[in-house]
Nucleic acid binder design. Structure first.
Length: 437
RNA sequence: GGAGGCGUGGCUGAGCGGCCGAAAGCAGCGCACUGCUAAUGCGUUAGGGGUCAAAAGCUCCUCGAAGGUUCGAAUCCUUCCGCCUCCGCCA
């Protein structure tokens, strides 16, 4: 959410951002609706005022006679058209949720992910003196991944991780949690089944409400009554990342500037409906409906420079982990067209996947400024006692399946075994994963 | 699953149709005073929005949430959400 006042005063900049981010929004219409909204609100306030004054006179009326007369007068009062106000407020909200954060000055202008800019590279795609296999082939050979059974039981994009694969996957998670703690992030295991406000607040609903056709989120019925619509109980959803759960933890809170930045990391299962990606990456572990991930999140004071620094620190941690795991990677700065509306500045990290012969996204770092905090009502008090919205940042620490791919494919040997990266050995208890038999 | 209770300002807690955005206590802040980290007295302190260049002022909304009754709702009614206690059931 962006401050209306800012939109009124900076319509030009907002329009520019709308254009560059490719958002379908008519800013002028928003401004018109805003005007009508304010006018209607004031009319209602005026009515309420006179009603309040009348009620006040009734309570102070001298005698029954006069009281009766005044009550009659009260009966005659006609409410202004509240339906129109509700309607216009709704319209206003619908337009407001689309208003983007103005992207940072260093964000490349572009239309799609093709316009993202590589800004850093560590290591080079590994050369093999044999034809490297994909994780799908290796997973099957080593009996650590089973997609056939996964699909049988879990449906499309289902998978089983088995045997040493489990130790490897959980080792990756433990390694990431340990790393984050070492970097001063408080670990959490947040809920993955959450109410809508957490997802709306972090920007995971494209509109005002959950839209199963557009939002990459699973809605869950938690009781029969909800299935039949007999209750108005809050809908529940499965999160696609720990980010919304971690951020919503701070919703309606007012922090002290002394406690900023707040740094937390969350381990969670992640669920993605992958709506709109039906035909993409249909094989293997690359794009799946559920996986484990460690996510980093930070709440910072409303200072762009400090937030930029914090974001760099967070992306640095991801980089450090890729390096310690020995995974060649590159960092991309995300362009305006590939950036979601709320983001101010975003980077992806991509690891080289030798079997798939491609770079694969293994992390995404975003700075939303106060866009999420406004939706979640998360504030802090600064030194002068003024209340401000916090800035919110998030970044992947490590996602299990894609890092699993990267490790399996990068560390494969000619005989199909997988060497365990040094830093993970203590979790797996062995140096090499070999075929059993 | 059954029975009962409760949700009020930073916290505790009173209020149960108009005098209540709300007693009192605690905590916070300010001032005064006492020769010593503290005590006492007085004052002050909820949030959000509109108007305004801004402040003051004026004003609207908010007592878990949404509806309803009424000239008028923290207070009455309905539904929902959450918490607590007891019983049952399952670990």
């Amino acid at each position: 959410m962006v401050d209306v006042k800012f939109i009124r005063d900076h319509a030009g900049e907002v329009k520019e951002a709308v254009k560059n981010k490719g958002i379908n929004l008519d800013v002028d219409e928003l401004l018109r609706v805003d005007k009508e909204r304010v006018a209607l609100m004031r009319a209602t306030e005026l009515f309420n005022k006179s009603k309040n004054e009348l009620n006040d006179r009734i309570s102070k009326a001298a005698g029954n006679e006069e009281r009766k007369k005044l009550i009659e007068e009260g009966r005659g009062l006609r409410e202004p058209d509240l339906n129109r106000l509700e309607e216009i407020k709704r319209k206003f909200d619908e337009l407001m949720v689309k208003v983007p954060t103005i992207p940072s000055p260093d964000t490349p202008i572009g239309k799609s992910d093709a316009d993202n800019k590589e800004i850093f590279r560590w290591g080079e795609p590994k050369k093999f003196n044999f034809e490297p296999k994909t994780h799908v082939e290796l997973g099957k050979y080593l009996d650590i991944l089973d997609f056939d059974k996964g699909t049988k039981v879990g449906g499309f994009r289902g998978y089983y991780v088995k045997n040493d694969g489990v130790l490897l996957a959980m080792g990756i998670m433990m390694y990431a949690v340990h790393k984050m703690v070492e970097k001063g992030f408080r670990p959490m295991i947040p809920p993955t089944l959450v109410k809508g406000f957490a997802l709306f607040g972090s920007g995971y609903f494209k509109g005002l409400e959950y839209d199963p056709e557009a939002d990459e989120i699973y809605e869950v019925a938690t009781s029969d009554k909800e299935l039949t619509g007999e209750t108005s109980k809050d809908k529940k959803f499965l999160v696609g990342t720990a980010e919304p759960s971690l951020l919503a933890y701070f919703s309606d809170e007012t922090l002290d500037i002394k406690d900023l930045p707040v740094k937390v990391c969350g381990y969670s299962q992640c669920y993605r409906s992958e709506i709109g990606s039906y035909s993409k990456d249909v094989k293997g572990l690359y794009r799946v409906h559920e996986f484990m991930k460690v996510e980093q999140v930070a709440l910072a004071e409303a200072d762009v420079e400090k937030a930029d620094k914090l974001q760099n620190e967070m992306t640095g941690i991801s980089g450090e982990m890729h390096e310690e795991l020995g995974l060649p990677y590159r960092r991309l700065q995300i362009c305006t067209g590939d950036m979601s509306p709320g983001k101010y500045r975003a980077f992806d990290i991509e690891a080289w996947l030798p079997g798939m012969k491609r770079w694969g996204e293994t992390g995404s770092a975003s700075n939303f400024l106060d866009w999420q905090a406004r939706r979640l009502n998360a504030k802090y008090i600064d030194e002068t006692g003024e209340k401000k919205y916090v800035y919110m940042l998030n970044n992947t620490a490590l996602p299990s399946p894609r890092i699993l791919i990267a490790i399996i494919e990068n560390y494969q040997t000619e005989d199909g075994s997988v060497v365990v990266p040094e830093v993970l050995r203590k979790y797996i208890g062995k140096e090499i994963i070999k075929a059993q038999r």
